[in-house]
Design a protein around this nucleic acid. Structure first.
Lengths: 379, 379
DNA sequence: TTGTAAGCGTTATCAT
DNA sequence: ATGATAACGCTTACAA
């Protein structure tokens, strides 16, 4: 295997020449020198083809193909098979993917198109999930990103299908309902973190998460709970495909416990600024709640800021429970307890579903990440 | 920022058939109905080939190829050319990329391999840069991610070269010096945000940034300045390729102004926790500085926390200047003034250099992002 | 000015 | 049990 790889490289690696080279770039320190980890072979020869293997094994190309693809229905003699394998090994043969694609129409490549997962810190884990799952299935990933203009979606998808990707995964940075161009027939497509027409979807299980979050706070002993960030605007499926479910889950838990929120604030945006203002008034009131459910981590951050302004200590004076688990949640002190959006899992599931269709809708659990912002109420 | 995100979501909606489908998925709201924006491509038939165009235009495949590739050295008659173009247009012909690759050995695809840019919030913009630059050059991007194990690098790179990518961009999430396997010959390769042997590099201009940062604080009128996070550990090129330059730039500015830091703290990690402790002692001392230079934004966050603990107000009581500009910088109040790591630019430059080699080292400017954490000293 | 034919490296269909 | 041979869809000598 490593033979296969090595004889394709012609650049000889001399540690010395590297250091010289680097040191020319004024100002950058030189790395410690040492053994090169990489072996190189000097061969300038062309990449060996199936025909080369055939020649070397004294058989026809057909036989090589048959043997190497394991299509051996007692057809090939053990002897021939062995010779082929030896020849392939010593020549360092590996089949040419482009020729394979032309012939078979498949590419062992899947397309991932997103509307900006990349640029969204908390969503970029989705890509990692896609990449990991793809690798485990022996697939490469061709990536495209669109800025949500219809024709960019279309261009990206057409390009992908032109390149004959085996499947397409569409990833959204924020769960919402979108309209996509018609997918190329014959290419299995899945939408991750979103809903679009009849496409199979992978979504976070927000109902369960909402319920679990509220239950967690209730079980901690809280009865006076406020909800900051119940925004009507978010209920539009085009704005969010899942927030409604989140609310429903929360409501269910509250109802089951026979509770009502002491206060519910709508916020124009789920951002620290507005959240802080809202929290100031909620926490400043004489009938201050002992716990706050924040619509997401940025809202929770606003609550932290308000608490700080008011001289209140999170957890001790007021508990905060949140949703999303973005990086921020881990920076805060105390750490923010929150329901994690399983971006990586969703990416992985998307790939699995695209490669192996079956489910119309997959709802992935949102783990509760306990960090310390929720404690039993005082007194 | 979030406004930007939200504006992008203003979209219209779903055709009826889709709504029916969606409504079957219990619990998810239905989108408003409206006009479908997509035209369906009528042909259920096979994709037209060059031969089809030739037949339809009454010429040979050669002529089609020549015309469509603009290889018209007075060779083709205007008439034939016109007929070909019309035929291609009406048939909706576009060349098959896989056939093209097999024939030409090129793929209009470039490989992007990284050690985890994806999963690193602040670095993921690099991908966006790569994607955008690639698109503008008519290239698709095949992406791979490795967890920094030598053989994963090798596997990824071999896979990419097997697939005959036209160029390779290696992207590092944190600027450092690494050893890469020998690159496949004939494939132009660039390393972004890192240094590796003789490979062309794209790096942030940390010297200029360090200098600009310190000068900015000095120009604001500060004389008593502390530096938190001057970590020796980071000077190892394997740990960081650029931090040394950052320090040098800072030192230059301080020297030029005839100043010395009142305090300099080494930190084991550039994280809020340790930074907060260090800042507590720096800010708690009677000879408290009026400004703090933080090694990066997370360190700065630690400084904010310490200031809050001590009842000090950022900007008013102590100015903070930082590096990196991760999302956090924008969440803080007051916003953190910081030198932005130009991940997106680096990604774009990496692609340009890979496709169009020339420079051995490109140092990209780090813009100063003014947000309000630096003010003139009081009194 | 244009067409024929030979590949590119595979796999699949036949003969043998 | 194996080998010719014909695609796959394109580009490019080389002919005409």
């Amino acid at each position: 295997m490593s033979v296969v790889m090595l004889n394709r490289f012609s650049r000889t690696v001399s540690p010395i020449s590297r250091v010289v080279h680097v040191s020319r770039r004024m100002g950058y320190g030189r790395a410690r020198t040492g053994e090169s980890r990489w072996l190189t072979r000097r061969s300038m020869s062309k990449r060996p083809t199936q025909a080369d293997v055939a020649r070397s094994a004294g058989v026809s190309a057909t036989t090589v193909s048959l043997v190497l693809n394991g299509r051996t229905g007692t057809r090939i003699s053990d002897d021939a098979a062995r010779r082929v394998r030896v020849a392939a090994e010593t020549l360092g043969y590996s089949p040419d993917p482009t020729a394979l694609s032309l012939r078979t129409g498949r590419t062992k490549t899947l397309g991932f198109v997103s509307d900006g997962v990349t640029v969204t810190r908390y969503a970029s884990a989705m890509i990692r999930g896609v990449l990991d799952a793809a690798e485990s299935k022996g697939q490469s990933v061709m990536m495209a990103e669109v800025d949500d203009h219809p024709d960019r979606w279309e261009r990206a998808i057409v390009d992908l299908s032109d390149r004959k990707v085996d499947a397409i995964v569409v990833g959204l940075m924020v769960a919402r309902t979108i309209e996509l161009p018609p997918m190329p027939s014959g290419v299995s497509t899945v939408i991750v973190n979103g809903l679009s027409g009849g496409l199979p979807s992978v979504l976070p299980d927000e109902f369960a998460a909402g319920r679990a979050a509220a239950e967690y706070v209730i079980r901690a002993g809280h009865r006076r709970i406020a909800f900051i960030g119940r925004s009507e605007r978010m209920l539009d499926p085009v704005v969010s495909a899942t927030v409604g479910r989140r609310y429903q889950g929360i409501d269910r838990a509250m109802a089951d416990a026979g509770l009502h929120f002491t206060t519910t604030c709508d916020l124009p945006e789920w951002e620290p600024g507005p959240a802080r203002e809202a929290a100031m008034s909620v926490l400043g009131s004489p009938s201050r709640p002992t716990a706050i459910l924040a619509a997401n981590d940025r809202v929770a951050f606003g609550v932290y800021q308000a608490a700080a302004d008011l001289g209140l200590t999170i957890a001790q004076d007021v508990s905060v429970m949140s949703f999303d688990d973005e990086a921020l949640a881990d920076y805060l002190r105390p750490g923010l307890t929150t329901m994690r959006l399983p971006y990586r899992d969703m990416g992985m599931a998307g790939v699995r579903e695209a490669l192996n269709p079956g489910n119309d809708l997959l709802e992935l659990p949102m783990p509760l990440v306990e960090r310390g912002s929720v404690a039993p109420p005082r007194g």
